[in-house]
Amino acid sequence: GTLHLNGVTVKVPSLEKAIKAAKKFAKKYNLEVQVHGNTVHVH
């Protein structure tokens, strides 16, 4: 999967790991997580 954090793109081995990391990051910075196919966006 691919993880987008505020314009930074990170390749992640699995989508589940990407979503987990995204949710952790989003919670910390009070951001929103959106999943588009195998790409996770945090903004």
Rank of each mutant, 00 (worst) to 15 (best):
K17H: 09
H41A: 12
V8I: 13
S14I: 07
H4E: 05
K11P: 08
E32F: 10
H4N: 08
V12T: 06
G1Q: 09
A22C: 14
P13F: 09
L3Y: 01
A22I: 15
Q34G: 05
K28H: 05
K23Y: 10
N38T: 11
G37Y: 05
G1C: 15
V12A: 05
F25P: 00
A26H: 00
K11M: 11
H43S: 10
K11Q: 10
G1N: 07
K28S: 02
A18E: 00
V12L: 15
N38G: 05
I19G: 00
A21R: 09
N6R: 09
F25D: 00
A18S: 03
V33K: 00
G37A: 05
N30I: 06
A22D: 00
V8S: 05
G37R: 05
S14V: 04
L15D: 00
V12D: 01
T39S: 11
H41D: 05
T2H: 12
Q34E: 13
L15H: 01
V35H: 02
K17W: 14
K27I: 06
T39D: 08
E32C: 15
A26F: 08
Q34W: 14
V35P: 02
H4T: 09
K24M: 10
H43E: 04
P13K: 14
L31D: 00
V8K: 12
Y29Q: 01
V12S: 03
H43D: 04
Y29K: 01
I19K: 01
T2I: 15
N38S: 08
K28R: 09
G7Q: 06
P13T: 13
L3D: 01
Q34P: 01
E32G: 05
K24Q: 09
I19P: 00
V10C: 15
V35M: 05
A26I: 06
H4V: 14
L5R: 04
A26L: 06
L15T: 02
Y29D: 00
E16G: 09
K28E: 04
A18Y: 07
N30V: 07
T2D: 04
G1K: 06
V35I: 11
A26C: 02
V35E: 02
L15G: 00
G1R: 05
L31G: 03
S14W: 11
L5V: 10
Q34N: 07
S14H: 08
L15A: 01
A21S: 06
K28P: 00
L5Y: 15
E32Q: 12
T9M: 12
V10I: 15
A18D: 00
K20T: 09
V10M: 12
T39V: 13
K11D: 07
N38C: 11
F25A: 03
V8E: 03
H41V: 13
G37D: 05
V42T: 03
E16T: 11
T9V: 14
N38P: 04
N30Q: 07
G7W: 12
L15E: 00
L5H: 05
K23A: 07
N38Y: 09
N38W: 15
H41I: 14
N38V: 09
V12Q: 03
V40I: 13
